[in-house]
């Protein structure tokens, strides 16, 4: 039974990477689980935020949804009619690197149109280009320029235009503003939000900046070492972080006020464990200040806590308010 309102259904997906040792003599192949047993259901038209520290699998999850990585186990289902190439688009972290330096803006933006099955004629192309350039706030007269002639913010607008020209249903943004100047971040974010609202896009938003995620997303998932830690409505999670890891993440976020910054207490933040020394217990147990003996023996499963939140912890914190 598939809920018709679901845009993406990720069911028990694991992704592992092989790193074979480089020596010719040994054929030892190690696998590294970038994602393990992730199940999420994304409602159509919702804005899902994905948070977690570096290496937690955020980007891997996004790229698996895009079809760039094949899941080792599990399936990814889309609402009927969604085609991976046409209806899911991606916004890159580094806007300039995502644009071919030898192509003009016009070529860059209209290139995805060539792969939709039917090639649009010249007039349609020009019309679409003009419309989309206006919508993202680029000057149509600059269409013959090259990407390196634009600022980072403008490059990201080109990236957004390229993603939106195919009129996708799902948009995945992988830290779309972290490479940008603080002054243009807000513009790009509001542009993305505008598209999301106008086209009723399903948005997946990956970011380090928690206040940004809080602002843009209505659903939130927290990843740690490829595992789901906490999942639920973002306001609920930000105000009552139940998982110790989520709490640590939120407490580690800098505050814009130097006085509070000086006085505040950070949640205890232990050393990260490498995936090679992984044991049976909870992946976070080694760093967790609340860990008890059970946490080292057995991995917690996602469990319902409260009405809307699911937490993978044996001892979810009770109503810890964010700082």
């Amino acid at each position: 039974m598939r809920d018709n309102n679901l845009a993406i259904e990720v069911d028990d997906v694991s992704v592992s990477f092989r790193h074979s040792s480089s020596s010719l003599m040994s054929f030892k192949k190690n696998t590294f689980d970038a994602l393990s047993n992730i199940s999420i259901a994304v409602q159509a038209g919702s804005r899902l935020g994905i948070v977690g520290e570096s290496g937690s699998g955020k980007t891997t999850l996004a790229k698996t949804i895009l079809g760039l990585y094949q899941p080792a186990t599990g399936t990814i289902g889309f609402n009927h009619g969604v085609q991976q190439n046409k209806d899911i688009q991606f916004i890159f972290q580094d806007p300039l690197a995502a644009l071919n330096p030898r192509m003009t803006v016009e070529q860059l933006i209209t290139e995805p149109l060539d792969y939709l099955g039917v090639k649009p004629d010249h007039a349609t192309r020009t019309k679409k280009l003009k419309t989309i350039m206006e919508q993202v706030g680029l000057d149509y007269s600059q269409r013959q320029r090259y990407a390196h002639e634009f600022s980072g913010g403008q490059c990201q607008r080109i990236g957004i235009a390229r993603a939106m020209i195919t009129e996708p249903k799902i948009l995945i943004c992988d830290e779309p503003v972290s490479a940008l100047d603080v002054s243009v971040r807000a513009q790009i974010i509001s542009l993305l939000k505008e598209f999301q609202q106008r086209l009723d896009l399903t948005l997946i938003f990956i970011a380090h900046d928690l206040s940004l995620v809080r602002y843009i997303s209505d659903e939130l998932i927290v990843l740690y070492q490829g595992k789901l830690m906490e999942m639920g409505p973002s306001e609920e999670i930000f105000s009552h972080a139940r998982h110790p890891y989520t709490q640590a993440l939120i407490s580690a976020e800098p505050r814009p006020d130097p006085d509070t910054e000086r006085q505040r207490h950070y949640a205890e933040y232990g050393e990260i464990e490498t995936a090679d020394t992984k044991l049976d217990g909870c992946v976070y147990a080694g760093r967790c200040t609340y860990a008890q003996s059970r946490c080292h023996i057995e991995a917690p499963k996602l469990q319902q806590v409260g009405e809307t939140v699911q937490v993978a912890c044996f001892f979810p914190l009770e109503a810890v308010t964010s700082v």
Partner: peptide
């Protein structure tokens, strides 16, 4: 990333 981008939109 621009090669990855091309793969994403189906080149």
């Amino acid at each position: 990333s621009y090669v990855e981008a091309a793969r994403i939109y189906g080149a």
